[in-house]
Each structure stands twice: as C-alpha cells, then as structure tokens.
Amino acid sequence: MQQDAVIIGGGFAGLSAAYILARARRHVTIIDSGTPRNRFAAHSHGVLALDGKSGLEILADARAQLAAYPTVTFLNGEAHAAQGTIDDFHVDVAGHEPITTRRLLLSGGIEDRLPDIPGLTERWGKTVLHCPYCHGYEIGGGPIGVLSTQPMSAHQAAVVADWGDVTLFTNGMPEPDEETLALLERRKVSLQPGTVDVIEAGTCDRLRVRLKNGRTFDVKALFVAADLHRRGTIAESLGCTLTETPAGMIIATDTVKATSVAGVYAAGDNARAFGNITLVSADGVMAGLGMHQSLMFSGHS
C-alpha cells in the first residue's frame, strides 16, 4: 500500500510531524534506528512541562501515543536509499520491502563528531556538554571550560560565562580578533593557549583538562561545539540543496520545511544549525502541516 508520507528518523522532529499527519488520518510510516542524537544525555531541560525528563523517555511516550492511531506504522531499521519524484517515491530499508510514498520527510541521521581527544567521548552528555541553556543551570557555577573547535567557540564561551567562571581553551585555534577579545574580557572569560592532550578525572568529581605542555585545569564541566555529521547520502541522491552553517552542512528548507525537491521535506537537526527538543519539534509540526497541505492541494488528495 502506498503511504501518504514516509518519515525517515523517528526523533522529536519526525514524531511531531507524524502526529500532525496521523490526526489528519493520513497513512504514515516512521523508519527509525533507535539512536537519537541526544541519547547520551540523562536529562532534558528547557522543555515546557517536561523539565528533567530524559529524552529517551519523552520519545518512548510519544511513540506509545502515536501507536494508538491506526494509520501510523513504525518500522525499526535504517533507510539507506530513496528515489523517485513527488507522489511516487521509493524508500529502501535493509531487510524490508521498498516502501512507496507520496511525500518524504528527512528528519534523522545526525550525529555529533567530537575532537579526537582522549577522555572526551566517554563523558559526552554528562560533563562534556554542548548547550548551556540545556545543562548550564545544573552545573551550579564555579569553573567551567570551553574547548575551542571553530571560530564560533569564542562566542560560545561568552555565552557560557553566565553560568560560571569560564576558561576558553584555544586548543591550537587562531586567537580571536580584537573585537571578540574585547567581548571575552567584558564577559570575564580567561583564554588559555596550548593544545589539549587529554581529559581525565580531577578532584571533587571535576574534569581535569591536561595540556600537552603539562599544565592542568580542573573544571566542573567542559562545553564543546561538536561538528554535525549527516549519516547517509539520501538528501544528496534526491538532489536536495544543502547549505553551509558554522555547525556543518544542513538541508536547505523553506518556512514549511520543504526542500528544493518537490515532495521532499526536512526537519530537525539535519535542517537547522542549532536546535533543542522544542525547536526541532516545532520544525516537525511545520513539516507535518506543509506535507498535509501539499497532499490536500495536489489534485488527487
């Protein structure tokens, strides 16, 4: 049976879009591998009425609620190819028959790539963090590090300064320009030159940032701007236009999350440079609305 929509990626954006379409009694298949980007974080913050609840728990609740709609199908797996044109797309999923669909939503396949520094990856989502708005309050002030990975890291350090006493580890990146240096001085951010060698356990449950020159700094948390990496090449194979951002390449979309390819939509972290649960969920809602209206006015709704 041809679907009205196939959603590749059952995270916050994908499930939000599915909810809109399900309530419009449209047939939707959600393809998901069960590896959401924020699975490393024990708690989510800044989500209205759900503060402190884990992202995995929120997703599980959403899936259970969506499962009550008879036109929704969940497919565990990973889509590895898609082709076709509007009203006749074909999605290939390993171990399953190809799925035909009228509309396609790309809402998954994003992962964070961290610098290759020992001790960093295993602390990701715990004491190595990306968003002060999500995790800064729980740090409770005190010494905080920011690891420079890109030109915007200096701006990140200036923002994080509202949550503690910040040291920006330049880690071989060029020194900020004069205007940025003046901003960091106003925000009382300390610059620490030198290359970071390893992240290890410090005293009193803190992290120890060890430089290659032997100097060490104990901090309560370390913020890192990771590179966004889109898994797979479905967007490229379909011909979707991409756009470059400070966080990496994302899929270009309009206000209703339509891509440059008719019938293909994109929502979530693969279609925005910076986001959180609330923002990507809102993107999913807009994509759901856009897809539904497109189906309505296509001439054979």
Rank of each mutant, 00 (worst) to 15 (best):
R210G: 03
R39N: 12
G194D: 11
Y133L: 11
N213A: 14
E111V: 12
G77E: 10
A81N: 08
E138W: 05
D116E: 15
T100N: 09
A225N: 12
V128W: 01
A271F: 10
V93K: 11
R39G: 08
F74I: 12
T170F: 00
E122A: 07
A287P: 04
D165S: 10
R206K: 13
Y265W: 02
L295Q: 10
T243P: 03
G141N: 08
V280K: 02
V264Y: 00
K53Q: 15
A154F: 09
S190I: 10
L48C: 08
P151Y: 10
V166H: 08
T195W: 10
E200F: 07
N270C: 14
S153E: 06
G55C: 10
G10E: 06
G232A: 02
G202T: 03
A81M: 01
A247E: 13
R63C: 01
L191D: 03
Q156Y: 01
L56Y: 09
D283Q: 09
I234Y: 09
C240V: 13
A62N: 07
P70Q: 04
G9R: 02
I58Y: 08
R187P: 02
F89E: 00
I58M: 15
N171K: 09
A258D: 02
A225G: 05
M173E: 14
T35S: 10
C240K: 03
L15W: 00
F169Y: 13
L120S: 06
I86S: 00
G34K: 04
D116Y: 06
T101I: 11
C134A: 14
T243A: 11
A282C: 04
R39K: 15
V264C: 01
L21I: 11
T241L: 13
G46Y: 08
D205S: 07
R231Y: 02
V93Q: 09
R231Q: 15
E57N: 12
P98N: 04
Y69I: 15
A182F: 04
L120M: 15
I234W: 14
V256G: 04
G248D: 11
T71S: 11
L129D: 03
D116G: 00
I31F: 07
Q293K: 09
L75H: 07
V160D: 01
G84T: 11
H96T: 06
G95L: 09
M291D: 04
A17K: 03
R186A: 13
I30Q: 02
R102Q: 13
R186N: 11
A5Y: 03
H96S: 03
R26T: 12
R63V: 01
A158I: 03
D165F: 00
A79M: 13
L184G: 01
S260E: 07
D162W: 01
T195H: 11
E178H: 02
H292L: 14
T253D: 08
P193L: 05
E200A: 14
W124Q: 08
D218E: 15
S44C: 11
V72T: 09
H90S: 12
K188T: 07
M249A: 15
L183Y: 07
L183P: 03
A62S: 15
A49V: 09
N276S: 12
T149H: 05
D116W: 04
G214E: 12
G239C: 06
